[in-house]
């Protein structure tokens, strides 16, 4: 077939990719290894790819002392990710479509209206004011979703995709058939944009999954904490205690109860877990030839 690379090139490219993959994988394996290492051995020998002394203590510790906390955080994270992603997809896809239409006169205005907000902002404090006092979002699960459901970067990616992928003929024929804009959008444009939607779905989902900023600013109730914020708290508490203990000598004893390095790495693995699989899950929408199918059909 003339549209594939030769066998030799295939081997070379595979090797190149495998090297990259190893580079990415090794540190992850390291995290995994440390999370299964006994604490004393960690202290004495440091990190190693093969645990000095194998131990499931970090995971056991987390499961025993904080199982309900972790499960709860999983629940919260999953809810935020699913709902947040769906809402974002809708908002982004909708705004980006008219932007991609060349025939719209005030297009530039709306582009600029969006882009300006990507560069300039009033800052964290007024935003916090709007979220807490104007919208009343503090300590609510929606606090972790709503402030993130629109993202300029994704809008522009989507717009570019629409522009370069949706053939004019498709829109033309729909118009001739008398279809309204919304109908064209939902029944034609979106199905043709599945790769872009899948892409943005991946990014948004990962964004919500990894987010610790919204919980940090707007959530105080530990029952509403998501996974990333949980680990953020652990990490920053340890750092802060170390920093402040010179001035506030009483603090240092709190370090004794702080999770060890093995436990922190176990936390990191747990946090990373499921979301890594989102790409394989959405990957089927990246299949080539989707466009052709739709037009011919």
């Amino acid at each position: 077939m003339g549209t594939s690379i030769s066998r030799t090139t295939n081997v070379i490219v595979n090797v190149f990719l495998i090297v990259l993959v190893l580079l990415c994988l090794l540190p992850i394996v390291l995290v995994l290894s440390v999370s299964f290492t006994d604490e004393t051995s960690l202290l004495n020998q440091g990190y190693s790819f093969f645990p000095g002394k194998f131990s499931i203590e970090p995971y056991r510790f987390l499961m025993e002392t904080n199982l309900s906390g972790i499960l709860n955080a999983y629940k919260i994270t999953i809810f935020n990710t699913v709902v947040g992603t769906l809402l974002t997809l809708l908002m982004v896809a909708l705004y980006a479509y008219p932007l991609s239409r060349r025939d719209l006169k005030y297009n530039n205005f709306f582009t600029f209206f969006l882009y300006f907000t990507m560069l300039f902002g009033g800052g964290m404090v007024p935003w916090y004011l709007v979220c807490t006092q104007v919208l009343g979002l503090k300590d609510s699960i929606w606090a972790m979703i709503l402030p993130s459901i629109f993202n300029g970067f994704f809008v522009f990616v989507m717009r570019t995709f629409y522009k370069s992928t949706i053939p004019i003929e498709v829109l033309e024929s729909a118009k001739i058939d008398g279809a309204g804009e919304y109908r064209i959008f939902f029944q034609l444009v979106l199905p043709l944009s599945l790769p872009a939607i899948a892409t943005i779905a991946i990014f948004t989902a990962v964004g919500f999954w990894n987010d610790y900023w919204l919980p940090l600013m707007l959530i105080n109730d530990p029952k509403l904490s998501n996974l990333q914020y949980m680990i953020y708290r652990i990490m920053t508490n340890i750092q802060a205690i170390r920093e402040y203990s010179q001035d506030a000598s009483g603090i240092a004893t709190s370090l004794a109860n702080a999770p060890s390095e093995g436990i922190r790495m176990a936390m990191a693995m747990i946090t990373m877990g499921p979301i890594v699989l989102i790409y394989p899950f959405l990957q089927k929408y990246f299949v080539k030839g989707l466009t052709i199918g739709a037009i011919k059909g």
Binding site: L90, M91, V92, L94, Y95, Y97, P98, R101, D103, L104, K105, Y106, F110, F113, L114, T117, F120, G121, G122, G123, V125, P126, W127, L129, V130, C131, V134, L135, P147, I149, F150, V155, G180, E181, Y182, F185
Partner: peptide, 29 residues
């Protein structure tokens, strides 16, 4: 001509007004 298309801007525009433009009072900080 294009009312329907312009209406698609509305959800995003509302979001931006609330979460981005309103806080811009902070530009004096």
């Amino acid at each position: 001509r294009h009312g329907a298309l312009y209406s698609m801007f509305i959800p995003g525009a509302i979001f931006l007004l609330i979460f981005a433009y309103l806080p811009m009072v902070g530009l004096v900080i």
